[in-house]
């Protein structure tokens, strides 16, 4: 695996760490739709997005 791809994934891991941890979660935790906390939706959304970006990053790199 090439160095730039490794670096991109490392950056992505750091982004994911920020998105899926505190203090980010504390911010999201305050948001609610009526009585419905948005935290679970956010978590799944962010998680899925991170995976999608990783997939795009790795698979696109294959075509390089």
């Amino acid at each position: 695996m090439s160095e730039p791809r490794l670096a991109r994934l490392l950056a992505l891991a750091l982004v994911a760490l920020v998105l899926l941890n505190f203090p980010m979660l504390a911010v999201i935790d305050r948001l609610a739709l009526g009585g419905l906390p948005l935290l679970p939706f956010y978590l799944f959304l962010a998680w899925g997005a991170v995976i999608a970006i990783a997939a795009w990053s790795i698979e696109r790199a294959d075509g390089e």
């Binding site: 695996m1 490794l6 750091l14 994911a16 998680w47 991170v50």
Partner: peptide
Amino acid sequence: LPVYLGPTLLAFLFLG
């Protein structure tokens, strides 16, 4: 969720 978020994060971080 942390049990699954962890491997996700580290799947990227640990690739190297």
